[in-house]
């Protein structure tokens, strides 16, 4: 599904990703852990096409298609979704309007018809109930004045409603209370399927107790420096990144 090869990327002329390679097959969940500043969020922005993140070498493909050649919205229409580490506020646009606009834009891009208003509302009600989000909140401007944890839940709600194929979760667990962590994880797990894949960026083993990864990678110094099974996360929790930072 996702295949990243020898990826190099720079921000403001400074190289952050330095030959990163990674493969996430369909049906699998991979976790990425690594020290602050290692380039984890940078990887998520490069994969989603944010301005200012300049690819200087290597490749990234989704089902064989060159992701890096596509505009951010084209990537989204192919099913790439990023749950932001720091979700943005969208003043003046009610969450419902925003999500409906996004969903319809994606459907149009894929040559599908727009979703009808009642159908959309039904979807919004079902998904918000599943994620224990007060439906009234969806009438407010997206993320404006929402707490840190509410913003993270709103990311997962958008994900649930857009039902993407390749999901990147950038520290979705940070800022969530204990119950929210469980609810959000259930929401994410509900999207696990043989034709989907996920990249879960986190600092904490705890999230991985809920969202069980098939593989765990260590990103340090702009490269994947170690990969292993779920036990790697437990080992990192004990020993930290010291030996990997030296390697990077």
């Amino acid at each position: 599904m996702l295949k990243v090869e020898n990826l190099h990327a720079a921000v403001d002329g400074k190289e952050i990703l330095k030959g990163l390679s990674l493969e996430v097959p369909a049906g699998e969940v991979h976790a990425i852990m690594g020290p602050n500043g290692a380039g984890k969020s940078t990887l998520s922005y490069v994969l989603t096409g944010r301005d200012g993140y300049e690819v200087t070498g290597g490749s990234a493909t989704l089902d064989g298609e060159d992701l890096l050649a596509l505009a951010p919205d084209e990537r989204a229409a192919r099913g790439v979704f990023l749950s932001f580490q720091y979700p943005l506020e969208i003043p003046g646009v009610p969450a419902l309007t925003f999500i409906r606009t996004a969903l319809n834009a994606q459907r149009r891009a894929r040559g599908e018809g727009e979703i009808s208003a009642p159908e959309f509302l039904k979807l919004a009600r079902t998904k918000s109930a599943e994620l224990k989000i007060d439906f009234e909140m969806l009438k407010r401007a997206l993320n404006v004045g929402f707490s840190g944890g509410e913003k993270k839940r709103m990311e997962i709600l958008q994900m649930a409603m857009l039902s993407p194929r390749f999901l990147i979760l950038d520290e979705t667990d940070s800022g969530l209370d204990i119950d929210a962590l469980r609810i959000v994880s259930e929401g994410v797990n509900a999207l696990r399927s043989p034709d989907r894949a996920m990249l879960v960026i986190t600092h904490y083993q705890r999230l991985l107790d809920y969202i069980k990864p098939d593989r765990v990678h260590v990103l340090a110094g702009g490269r994947i420096v170690a990969s292993g099974g779920p036990e790697l996360a437990l080992e990192l929790e004990k020993a930290g990144y010291e030996r990997y930072e030296a390697a990077a």
């Binding site: 096409g49 919205d73 989204a76 943005l88 969208i90 003046g92 646009v93 925003f98 401007a141």
Partner: peptide, 24 residues
Amino acid sequence: EALFYARQRGIPEDEARALLTEAF
């Protein structure tokens, strides 16, 4: 950043600009 956020959700650039401007 808001523009990128909207585009990441699948809203094409022109539409995203119009949406944010109308909201403004």
